[in-house]
Design a protein around this nucleic acid. Structure first.
Lengths: 339, 339
DNA sequence: TTGTATGCGTTATCAG
DNA sequence: CTGATAACGCATACAA
């Protein structure tokens, strides 16, 4: 399926390349009759201008950005993507989506591939493996290209550049404190993202809240990778350790925890309270609805895209920014009422 | 942030453009010393080769495909995207993601934009508005470009080209019949995608199953756009019409329906049975788990990508294919046991 | 009205 | 070892 070129059309029609070009570009220099004839054979041969040559000649920007995310099926990053795509397309940008599956190697390959393709900028939220193994520094090599890179959610502190996060520490602190205020005595912490930047911050917030409120234990941290052992784990936590509340770092896990606890025969919130992160359909339409650290994922996406595009178009030449999107606790029915 | 070119480097170093080019490409013709010197100043000036010029000269393929989907936050298309990205990146392709929000205008703009950017092929699942208003024919214009287009899930029958769907009619028929076999007397049909190709087929399957099994009514179709009026609608359906089962065309709606029914005080499946489409976390971890028409979304994505790439690379020159992915009913606890 | 010449930034060929 | 030159496909100033 070789592409037809202007030159070939010129030969076919016994005209010069420039005449063809002008005709197809609807130049006033060309008479209507010729235009029609040219247009016809162009269509006939399925002519489509070579974008590379055209852009090279016209010196236009490609207007593409690359997005590198750990996953897209968990809910959160899908919403982020939605926000990004909306914002980007408003400004005429297209988005290359690369999904790392939380693997470091895939992340690196994605970035190399994006750079090879001359994207105008990159949005990235680091893979779990990258942050866990502390392999984040490799990204610094990509900065030689003075290519705008905006990090969001899972960021790398030491890396200079624009960043967007929520106030993870405070959010976890506030949520934990809320559980305490509603009378919970032993609060556990469930996480699938233990070794990520945001996972660490949320854990810290939880631990400090426990400590400052004079709880006698040092915290109960449950790291999980999938939901296979969830039932067993929860049973043990509730039976043996008398845990009566969980703070959970993501929506899906909060949802699964809620349903598993109920399947075990416990009442939520009376026996066990639950607070999750990120509000979506799962938390809103659960029974009971889940009290959540309201995390505007779509908003985070559009904000990130907006900052990136400003950089690309040099509208923003100030020093790197760190935007912190404030969360608020959305009270559902998975927690007891304040007394 | 003007890009440095070879020509500029040549001037700076008092060398010719070709020498610089060879040095940077590690040609054996160039002595080590020169290479190092060139490399150094190239880095210094942040030189990065112009991809457009390079590709133009080398005649390399871009290896990009465009993906046009109605949404990405509902679960299904996120999984499709995951499958596509995985398959595409395996073959070295990158994926432009365009989200139409089910709007026709956005879909059209997305396609134009993708074609302008010379993608090698397009994967599309049509917007609800496009199918509802029967505006699908506009896509035919894009076929002049003899650009491979693969339609999946929401396809346009009259459009020649590769298609991938599930057996929507049969799936709905089988699911409805299953409800009947478990003793349900009055089955309702809830849909958010009434006017799409798949929505119509599923509705047909449901209606025919009702009819062939001698049910006295003509079917109860509930079109919903969002979940605001869901509670009211369900209450009416169950109280007034004595509906004791629902077949629901998507996962999220099945999930919301389940929880709303329970919130109304009814037991699932004893009072009301539920079957949904598309199996994911929502259906698996619900209480009770939801009986589902198992729709391998990720598989559909990778299959679509695979077919598209075969077309692009002309490995497949056969006439257009219609791949039908067979579903199976995954029995959960939202339906009664077979007697 | 049509055609010629030039250049966008690269790389490949070939001559020096 | 180095450099001049052509070519990739297109658009445009300028010449005819």
């Amino acid at each position: 399926m070789k592409k037809t070129t202007l030159k070939e059309l010129a030969q076919i029609l016994n005209l010069s390349v420039s005449t063809i070009s002008k005709a197809l570009n609807d130049s006033i220099e060309i008479p209507k009759k010729t235009k029609i004839k040219v247009r016809k054979t162009a269509d006939e041969y399925g002519y489509v201008p070579n974008y590379l040559a055209r852009s090279l000649k016209l010196g236009v920007k490609q207007k593409t950005i690359g997005l590198v995310i750990p996953n897209v099926t968990g809910g959160f990053f899908a919403k982020v993507l939605h926000g990004i795509e909306k914002e980007a397309s408003t400004y005429g940008y297209k988005v290359f989506v690369c999904i790392t599956d939380d693997k470091h190697i895939k992340e690196k390959e994605s970035l190399q591939s994006l750079i090879k393709d001359n994207v105008d900028g990159i949005l990235i939220s680091f893979a779990e493996e990258t942050q866990r193994k502390n392999k984040t520094s490799y990204i610094e090599n990509f900065f030689n290209h003075n290519l705008p890179i905006v990090q969001f959610d899972r960021v790398y502190d030491k890396l200079v550049g624009d960043k967007i996060t929520i106030n993870d520490f405070d959010s976890a602190y506030t949520a934990t404190e809320y559980l305490i205020e509603t009378g919970c005595k032993k609060i556990g912490f469930i996480t699938t993202i233990s070794k990520t930047s945001i996972g660490e911050l949320r854990k810290e917030g939880y631990l400090i809240a426990i400590k400052l409120n004079g709880h006698s234990h040092d915290g109960f941290i449950f790291n999980i990778e999938n939901y296979d052992g969830l039932k067993k784990m929860l049973k043990k936590a509730i039976c043996e350790h008398q845990i009566d509340a969980f703070l959970i770092t993501d929506e899906l896990s909060a949802f699964c925890t809620l349903n598993t606890i109920q399947a075990l025969g416990y009442k939520v919130p009376n026996d066990v309270s639950i607070i999750g992160f990120t509000n979506g359909y799962l938390t809103r339409y659960s029974n009971p609805s889940i009290t959540t650290v309201c995390h505007q994922a779509s908003n985070m996406g559009s904000t990130a895209a907006n900052i990136l595009i400003s950089r690309i178009e040099s509208k923003n030449i100030e020093s790197p920014s760190h935007t912190i999107i404030k969360t608020k606790l959305t009270i559902g029915n998975s927690t007891k009422k304040l007394i």
